[in-house]
Amino acid sequence: MIVAEGIYKHFRSGTRSIRALENVSLEVGRGEGLVISGKSGSGKTTLLHCLGGLEAPDKGQLLYDGIDLGSLSSKALSLFIRKNVGFVFQRSNLFSFLTVRENIAFPLELNDMGGAGKNRRIDKLLRDIGTPDLGPAFPHEISGGEMQRVAFARAIAHKPAVLLADEPTASLDTDTGRLLVELMISMSGEQKCAIIIASHDPDIVRMADKTLFIKDGKVEVLK
């Protein structure tokens, strides 16, 4: 269970202070899907970064199964993220110098999952995302849709507690984007992994268990 309580975040731009999040609270259970929706610049990415531990909120609390992320040291937080969080970004997700297979192996290696188990896991993920033959390919050799599917496979390879996806379909056509999100939701559900997607795509909003509309850093509606 991920619980965010009263999250505030602001940024400084020169002499101006920009309010990115104001008193945001939410709850997502294991296997549940939440879509954070809102216009560009509304604070979706900042909220996602805060939920993933990449950004520390100025105020408020983030609890992962009762563990307060704010109480962890920098090293402990990195190790926590390594084990419990998977990220899919809008673009340039994959490491350009690694093959698809090596990209998926990255979080497994980080989490000490090596040997035959690692290879079995990669093979399964490649089959599940419908690209069983892409293993030896480099990112520049595959399409944008394939790239995002591989990025998703990499994000859930180590079976994290939560998958965070920031506009994962933004660079894809509608059909490819919809198929990707369906795949993400179904596979995350199988793994009992909470999935939080930041998107302004109405099709994606309709697929979610819960939706949080955000405007100027404030939660407008939580459905």
Binding site: G52, K75, L79, F80, V85, S96, L110
Partner: peptide, 16 residues
């Protein structure tokens, strides 16, 4: 030139 990739690595929990 691959700064973003280091950002992604850190987002995956790579230590300093």
């Amino acid at each position: 030139k691959n700064l973003r990739e280091y950002g992604v690595m850190k987002a995956m929990g790579v230590l300093a």
